[in-house]
């Protein structure tokens, strides 16, 4: 709380110095938190987790609304047209904001987005049903080697985190699997549970949600996820693969530096709350703390990585 008071004072000083600027680094009522997807996805769930903590810490309502369309592109293309007074924020997702503008003109570029915090990611994971013959990752690889192309793997969308992971892993393991795109993780999981496909490229969140019904063969993290101590990482098994879908929040680029910093600190404060972290981990998420100061480096590294992967996969030119 003290930190916030200091913050406010600092912001007020900055404001006083910045004569004529009526935008203050202080919340003036409820905040509109736009999710550029429909409800029920990982972006929505993590925003819903933030909602009560925000209210408790900063005494303002965080009003979540959905603005689906174009795989998020409709929302991001409209973001910089919104007011930069700090009362409107929008969720951003990697690799979406890198791949989409690289494919075609979608009305925004990665650099356009004033992303001020990346607060979690969902590590890639290969998921199979509990009664699947694949007990380990090696079983799946052996089957794929014996029957090239016949191992079908569902996933959410194309040119998405799941799709990039599939392409990358196929290369690393020297196998050929068939990727079957579905509309969203929910549909991809349904297809897996219904045995329409033999495995799924999903996230650790799938393992958390489906519990005993599924088994994860490996997760793309540096260390094992605390919720799944028995599931090995790809690295342990000899495949250099870490990553997943990263999620953060952006402001319109008209927001001044003080407002952006205030937001970065606020989201950071929620992220450092133990109860919040625990809730996220129980949901299968992995935490990430990239604030405004480290954003440029983080983004540059991710952009390079994703564009490289996508180019190798033939998804962009």
């Amino acid at each position: 709380m003290l930190r916030r008071t200091i913050l406010k004072t600092a912001a007020a000083i900055a404001l006083a110095a910045n004569m004529g600027n009526v935008v203050g680094a202080e919340l003036a009522g409820s905040v509109n938190y736009i999710i550029p997807f429909g409800p029920g996805g990982e972006s929505d769930i993590s925003a819903r987790f933030q909602q009560p903590f925000f209210k408790e810490k900063f005494k303002q309502d965080l009003v979540i609304s959905y603005q689906p369309g174009g795989g998020g592109a409709v929302g991001w293309a409209s973001l910089n047209g919104l007011s930069g007074n700090g009362q409107t924020i929008m969720g951003v997702n990697l690799p979406h904001i890198v791949i989409k503008p690289a494919q075609k003109d979608v009305g925004f570029t990665t650099a356009d987005l004033n992303t001020f915090y990346m607060f979690h990611y969902t590590p890639d994971a290969i998921v199979v049903t509990a009664d699947s013959p694949y007990q380990t990752l090696d079983d799946l690889i052996a089957d794929a080697k014996a029957n090239p192309g016949e191992v079908t793997m569902s996933g959410s969308g194309k040119a998405s985190a799941n799709h990039l992971a599939q392409i990358k892993f196929d290369k690393l393991a020297g196998i050929l699997t068939t990727y079957v795109p579905f509309k969203g993780t929910g549909a991809a999981v349904t297809a897996l549970l219904g045995k329409q496909t033999k495995a799924e490229w999903g996230y650790t969140t799938v393992g958390a949600k489906q519990g005993d019904a599924v088994r994860m063969l490996a997760v793309a993290m540096d260390e094992r996820h605390p919720l799944f101590p028995d599931v090995p990482t790809f690295k342990e098994l000899g495949y250099d693969m870490t990553g997943g879908a990263y999620r953060g929040i952006a402001l319109p680029n008209t927001a001044d530096a003080a407002t952006t910093r205030m937001w970065s600190d606020m989201i950071g404060e929620i992220n450092s709350d133990e109860a919040f972290r625990q809730q996220m981990l129980d949901g299968g998420f992995a935490m990430l703390d990239v604030g405004i100061d480290d954003m440029a480096d983080f983004m540059a590294a991710r952009v390079e990585e994703y564009l490289d992967d996508a180019r190798k996969a033939g998804l962009i030119k």
Binding site: G71, Q103, F182
Partner: peptide, 10 residues
Amino acid sequence: VGVAEISADI
């Protein structure tokens, strides 16, 4: 019309 849901085209 628009970004395709399950393929990589606009």
